[in-house]
Amino acid sequence: MRAKPISDLARPSLAKGVRLQIDSATNKNVLLYPEGIVELNETADEILSRCDGRMLGQIVRELADAYQADSNALAADIRDTLSDLERRKLIVFK
């Protein structure tokens, strides 16, 4: 578990050696890293596609708009997903 919650100002990015790309067999995005592949569900894909230097706060706003969702509940879900990915060293915060 993280000691502190992820700040709205944090900028999640893919860790070095991790690639996000389309899987031509399924037309869905996958994460590729040394000896590993993660097939992404729609939510994870929407989040990771925005892990390019944008701040967490902005990612939450964009997804809340896109899905007409409550941004507080959504922010908690996104933070959970991001800390899981951070623990697996697939993303870093800049």
Binding site: D23, S24, L32
Partner: peptide, 8 residues
């Protein structure tokens, strides 16, 4: 291999 779906 890539055409067959291999990713790594």
């Amino acid at each position: 291999a890539a055409e067959l779906g291999v990713l790594q």
